[in-house]
Structure formats: structure tokens, C-alpha cells
């Protein structure tokens, strides 16, 4: 990106500082998206300055930067939107987490998505625990019909669990099928998260 040259050092410093803040605010984006946003901001500043070239350059610069607003706020929506696009295109968990975190404040649906993502993390942890403690991890059932999917401590209480809390020592029914079942559930939740994100993105466009 070609930087704009200013007549005074102070104007140059103000401009450089603003562009630097824009770089920081867009650092989460892909290189292509980031360059696109930065080029457009730079172009806007240049066009504004050119259209007001008869006025004091520093004052004009301050005016355009004031109109653009603080990059951390102004670019928030654009960055969040572009990040969802990147997450749904790449299926990359890193982009997915970033997109969820960026949009967490935008509505209840993102809180639901975030809870789903916590479940998404829980299942791989349970798979690892199953390998370490095969007898204490699984789908445990009790005679009264309650169940626990997860880790059960030797005393029969506590641990990571998905299901009813604090069941007495029950019978494990999945055995070695626990790992493929957990893996399948994790994949289904992941597909569900991506699907919900796509729905949200579509609704946002509407």
C-alpha cells in the first residue's frame, strides 16, 4: 500500500498512527481481506484530502479521520462480517473461534453458538480421558433411569460430565464404542455450528 505524503511532520504522524491502528484492528483477517480494507481506508483519506486541497491539510486530515471514526470501533462490524465469511469458507477452527468471539456481543445466537463450541471442546477431552482412564469414562446408567456421559471419579461423583450430575456408580454401556460415538457427536456439533453460522450470516444480509 502506498502511503500518503503530507506537508508537515505532525500531519504525517497523525496519518501513520491512524493507519497503524487500522492495521492492528484488522490483524485478525486474512492477508487479502486486510489489504483490501487498508487500501480502501487509505483511498478514502486520499480522496477526501484531494477534494479539500484548498483547506488546511492538518485540519482536513483530522476531519476525515473524525468522520471515519476510531478504527477499533468503525472496523469492528466489517472485521466481524469478513471473519464469519472466512470461518464458513475455510472450516478452520481458529477462524471459527475468532468469528464467534468477535460476534459474541451481537446476539443470543452467538451465546448459544459459544456454548455449543464449549461442548465441541469437551468431547475430544473425554476421548483423551477415555484412553487414560478407560473404566471411569463412558456412558453410565443407573437403575433409576438417570445417566452420565463423561468422566466419573472412583467415588462415583464429580468429574467432567454431560448429563445428570452426581450419579452413583452406574453401569458403563458403550465400552470401546465411546470413542467413535464421541467423535461422531463432536463432528455433528461442528457441522451444526457451521450451519448456524451460515444461517446467521444469511439473516444478517437480509
Amino acid at each position: 500500500m502506498k502511503a500518503i505524503s503530507f506537508d508537515t511532520q505532525s500531519a504525517q504522524r497523525v496519518y501513520n498512527d491512524y493507519i497503524q491502528r487500522c492495521r492492528k484492528a484488522t490483524s485478525i483477517l486474512s492477508a487479502k481481506d486486510r489489504e483490501d480494507v487498508l487500501l480502501e481506508i487509505n483511498s478514502h483519506i486520499y480522496e477526501y484530502l484531494s477534494a479539500n486541497s484548498t483547506k488546511d491539510q492538518m485540519e482536513t486530515l483530522l476531519n476525515v479521520l473524525e468522520r471515519l471514526g476510531a478504527p477499533e470501533e468503525t472496523l469492528k462490524e466489517m472485521v466481524a462480517f469478513k471473519k464469519i465469511g472466512q470461518a464458513t469458507l475455510t472450516y478452520n477452527p481458529k477462524h471459527l473461534i475468532q468469528a464467534l468471539a468477535l460476534n459474541l456481543t451481537n446476539g443470543v445466537i452467538y451465546i448459544i453458538l459459544f456454548v455449543l463450541f464449549l461442548f465441541e471442546i469437551a468431547f475430544p477431552i473425554l476421548i483423551i480421558l477415555k484412553l487414560i482412564y478407560p473404566d471411569q469414562v463412558g456412558l453410565f446408567t443407573r437403575s433409576n433411569g438417570t445417566f452420565l456421559y463423561g468422566y466419573l471419579s472412583k467415588s462415583g461423583s464429580g468429574g467432567i460430565s454431560i448429563g445428570f450430575s452426581n450419579p452413583a456408580k452406574g453401569t458403563e454401556i458403550l465400552g470401546s464404542w465411546f470413542i467413535p460415538v464421541s467423535l461422531l457427536i463432536a463432528v455433528l456439533i461442528y457441522i451444526g455450528i457451521i450451519f448456524l453460522l451460515k444461517v446467521v450470516k444469511k439473516n444478517k444480509k437480509k
Binding site: 480502501e40 468522520r67 466489517m78
Partner: peptide, 24 residues
């Protein structure tokens, strides 16, 4: 281009749209 659009909206529809609204 973006700046031109803002000016045209201002002239054509008498609305001073902010950059933070137009670009997203």
C-alpha cells in the same frame, strides 16, 4: 468509489451518510 458515493448520496438525497455506515 466510496468517497464519491458519499458525496452523491449527499447531493442526490440530502443525507450525510457516515463512512462507518456506508463501508460495512
Amino acid at each position: 468509489y466510496g468517497y464519491e458515493l458519499i458525496q452523491d448520496i449527499k447531493v442526490g438525497f440530502d443525507i450525510d451518510v457516515g463512512e462507518g455506515t456506508l463501508y460495512p
